[in-house]
């Protein structure tokens, strides 16, 4: 389900340090142009200007380059839907981490895109399975 929210979620799906994700911005008037990657958080905390989040925390990622590995999606696909496609997704998730660790950003991006693709394939396979099943059920029961 995070697919639908990609533009705003891109930068918190990968590892930053624990205290960073709260993107603090004052509630702007609706007409004010928004930076697409900084959604406003209304009435949560007072704005704090000039506080750059200390990104680039624990693992080995480059700051500012969202590199989701879709591991959660792939595990969900494996356990709830489609193990063949889910396992492929986990393999690519592993490649994302491995290539990030060796500094191969381009390779990591490729693996990340592949992991995303296989997440989409899993969802599509799930829906397709249901459509086929319902079609067979309908034709069998003569609806």
């Amino acid at each position: 389900m995070s697919e639908s929210d990609k533009p705003t979620s891109g930068d918190d799906d990968w590892g930053g340090s624990e205290e960073t994700p709260w993107q603090q911005q004052p509630p702007p008037p609706p007409q004010q142009p928004q930076q697409p990657h900084q959604p406003p958080q209304y009435g949560q905390q007072p704005p704090q200007y000039g506080q750059q989040p200390p990104y680039g925390g624990p693992p080995t990622h480059q700051p500012g380059t969202p590199m989701p590995n879709y591991l959660v999606h792939s595990i969900l696909a494996t356990l709830l839907c489609c193990p063949p496609t889910g396992i492929v997704g986990i393999v690519f998730a592993s490649q994302v981490n491995g290539k990030l660790a060796t500094g191969d950003l381009a390779g990591a991006k490729k693996a990340s895109d592949q992991a995303k693709l296989w997440t989409i394939i899993s969802v599509a396979a799930g829906f397709l399975g249901w459509i086929v099943y319902l079609a067979l059920y309908a034709s069998a029961s003569g609806v």
């Binding site: 590892g15 994700p21 693992p59 080995t60 591991l71 986990i90 994302v96 981490n97 491995g98």
Partner: peptide
Amino acid sequence: PSSALMRWRYAP
């Protein structure tokens, strides 16, 4: 962000 366990390099 994801939990430290899920961000672990060898998690996948």
